[in-house]
Design a protein around this nucleic acid. Structure first.
Lengths: 246, 246
DNA sequence: GATCGCAGCGATACGGTGTATCGATGAAAT
DNA sequence: ATTTCATCGATACACCGTATCGCTGCGATC
């Protein structure tokens, strides 16, 4: 296309006289923190946390990125809201019931469920103090359920227990997530990735410097992630029980 | 300064004739992965992980950002190398000795020490499978030390134990780090931050919806982070001991 | 000792990010 | 009907990771 043709198609926009006026602004779609957070969560669920940008979230809501700053002061705040929304989901799953073991198990499994529904959760959970209303409500419910059980009269003990179990759960979920992440980041399927990784592993193990790791790779029948999580959780709960007997 | 003056100072660079030739390139400083990683770690230690950018790391080494791509393929790889370097530090602290409790304690405390020396470690630890040589050496040493103890004849049990303890440690360290992060991100000192946060907390607690949390804030004498970590660790080790008795 | 080839370097560029600024706008208030 | 004003979005800025590619200086070759 020549310059000449271009001029015919698109009149030179430098001159006001020939430029059309902007179209009337359509009434902007109503917005709310909730809608913003929901859009962000959908984006994170389907495209990964990395592609949650204010521009994309805003686009999904049919607005410019700057409009979001009426509702949040910072992207970090949006992430905070996303996490708290997930705590909301966990609350909605119902109250805690049964023994203290039941309560702790329920907590652990709900968190695991949430982390599986929202693969980005663990990454956000790390390094974010829980001050949102849903997180507080959830913690309060857990404290209340535990506190009513024999052996948990001292609220300091209850808190310590809760923190320890939570630490395990978060750590275990991060571990579960790490492999998934590496695979997903490489853009391969799990099999492709294992196939691509296997030769390196074999080469390293062939050096003989890692006999125990080699045994694990060769001999150990790996339990499912769910089973592994469960076994760890049993260890923790045994520990809590042991502590209570003093 | 007028245009005229400017012209006198800086000759129009559009004309080749008046433009000076580029100065001879200085011999580039020798580079290596190790130097790159060290520079990145220093930057992360002093300015925070967020300000580790390839541009800044390269600048610190007196080179352009693109030169780094001869040594790494991706920023992610640099982060992997940083983590593995920290495992190197942990290895250098010496072998594992004593009972299986001693070994697990040592592991936990070394990791905690590393996380305190390098505040960014926990963030990187999350979601990064450990395939680096130092990480593998460290794991191998831990497996060997544990495996020689009574009760750990089954390597699957050893592995499960290691994973569980590690999960707790990582989770606990993340929890420790989260508050520090929030404070540091706000750019306040700890006292300023507590002062700024306190009114909100009081207002929320005044609603009466969080009686247990209120009790914790008001009644519980908070142990130091070190003590809290230790208590949790004791719970975990008790759990391991309990599991072994079957 | 001169020449050449080539690995490796860095200038430049691209598409993306979070967010500050500020004129324009449309709805609410008068 | 007019004015006010909160709010929206276009634009801009600094910075990011990284693809591209011409240039440079060094080591190998003749």
């Amino acid at each position: 296309m020549t310059d000449r043709e271009e001029e015919l198609d698109a009149p030179n926009p430098l001159l006001v006289w020939e430029r059309p006026e902007p179209e009337r602004r359509p009434a902007p779609a109503p917005l709310s923190r909730e809608r913003i957070v929901q859009a962000a969560i959908e984006l994170a669920d389907s495209e990964g946390l990395a592609s949650v940008s204010l521009r994309k979230v805003a686009a999904q809501l049919g607005s410019g990125p700057m409009r979001l700053y009426g509702y949040i002061a910072t992207k970090e705040e949006l992430l905070d809201l996303m996490v708290d929304a997930v705590y909301g989901e966990m609350i909605a799953e119902g109250p805690f019931e049964g023994t203290w073991q039941d309560t702790l198990r329920t907590m652990a499994h709900r968190m695991r469920g949430a982390a599986h529904r929202h693969a980005w959760l663990t990454e956000l959970l790390s390094g974010r103090p829980l001050r949102g209303p849903n997180a507080m409500t959830y913690s309060e419910a857990a404290l209340a359920a535990l506190g009513s059980q024999k052996g948990f009269e001292d609220i300091a003990v209850t808190l310590q227990t809760l923190k320890t179990v939570t630490a395990y759960v978060v750590g275990a979920l991060l571990d579960e997530a790490s492999e998934r992440h590496a695979i997903q980041a490489s853009g391969m399927t799990q099999e492709e990735w294992q196939l691509a990784t296997y030769p390196y592993l074999q080469r390293v193990l062939a050096t003989g410097r890692f006999p125990n790791i080699a045994r694990i790779v060769e001999e150990v029948e790996h339990p499912s992630q769910a089973e592994e999580f469960e076994r760890g959780l049993r260890i923790i709960l045994d520990g809590v029980a042991a502590r209570m007997k003093r």
